[in-house]
């Protein structure tokens, strides 16, 4: 088994380790069962947040994201991560610096001050795409790893923005109505459900959550209305920032708009962890602002 393991440097970001540690724990545990070994990327920082940092000074964004990439280059390992925001920073900066010599020289000038150099020797992946990729894992291997199928549950998928968009900077193809995460959800035994405007943003990005919380929650609320319409038992996503916006956002929506949805929100890793038999305690689901109990009752 060990020689077939694919090893990646696990870039954590901020919200997964510091707000939803269950996302981190489940990523490590679930990936190991399908032949992926995540090793710590020591000294990683904030990716840095593409909305907050990119909006202020793109040059700092490039340099700071490049520093995180170089840490993995020094380990001679590709990066795997579990957050769309991190994906935008780490994947996109890695790609741009590889393709654009002028940009790379500028960044390397800054990195030289801290004895680092961007070489462009590694690739960056979202763990979800590795799960879907038959060369690494694939849907069948995910299905085979399931010991407690999520039978009888309706699960909606939120893709988020920065994993697949902008499509010309990515390799996922059309972004109007992707279905690959639904395939992964179906592999867990759950019934994936479609809903209106699936690809709409959660409302948190671009610094809007910090700038105008009511505006940001109003976008989330529109998503919640569309999710309620199809009777989803839970929402799954692949981005802890989207998770924060939906999970804590529902509490804020209740407070500001007086509407209570009570829809459990779980990262795909947490969902996979449940399907592989991990207990709610092993996933720290009690840290979720919206209780996951209604969903757990259907599967436990």
């Amino acid at each position: 088994m060990a020689e077939n393991m694919h090893t990646y440097a696990f870039f954590l970001g901020c919200i997964a380790p510091n707000r939803y540690p269950g996302c981190e724990a489940s990523a490590i545990a679930t990936s190991r069962k399908v032949g992926i070994e995540l090793v710590p990327l020591k000294g990683g920082s904030c990716c840095p947040a593409p909305g907050a940092f990119g909006s202020i000074d793109l040059n700092v964004w490039y340099a700071m994201a490049a520093r995180n990439v170089v840490l993995a280059e020094e380990m001679k390992t590709d990066i795997a991560l579990i957050c769309n925001g991190c994906y935008k920073s780490i994947y996109e900066v890695n790609k741009k610096l590889k393709e654009n010599d002028e940009l790379r020289d500028g960044v390397n000038e800054v990195l030289a001050e801290i004895d680092m150099e961007f070489k462009g020797s590694i690739d960056v992946w979202h763990l979800a795409e590795l799960y879907y990729d038959p060369k690494i894992c694939g849907v069948k291997k995910i299905a085979d790893s399931v010991t407690r199928p999520l039978t009888g549950t309706k699960v909606a998928v939120h893709y988020g923005c920065h994993l697949m968009k902008p499509k010309k900077e990515r390799h996922f193809g059309e972004t109007d109505n992707p279905m690959w995460i639904e395939e992964l959800v179906a592999a867990l035994g759950a019934e994936p459900v479609q809903y209106r405007n699936k690809m709409q943003c959660c409302g948190a990005g671009g610094g809007v959550r910090g700038y105008d919380i009511v505006h940001s929650l109003d976008i989330t609320n529109e998503k919640m209305i569309n999710l309620q319409e199809v009777g989803a038992d839970a929402l799954t996503e692949v981005c802890p920032f989207c998770q924060l916006q939906y999970d804590r956002g529902q509490v804020e929506i209740k407070d500001k708009f007086g509407i209570d949805y009570g829809l459990p929100v779980l990262h795909f890793n947490e969902m996979l962890g449940l399907a592989q038999g991990m207990s709610p305690d092993e996933l720290a689901l009690d840290l979720h602002a919206v209780s996951c109990e209604p969903f757990l009752e259907k599967i436990l």
């Binding site: 540690p21 020591k42 840095p48």
Partner: peptide, 29 residues
Amino acid sequence: GHGVPNNDANRAARTKLGLTADPPTTHMY
């Protein structure tokens, strides 16, 4: 080093999960 830094409640939860109290990022290093 983090836009959303760690806190005590989260450290306790991490320890319970078998993770290090501070993640192996700039928090631990």
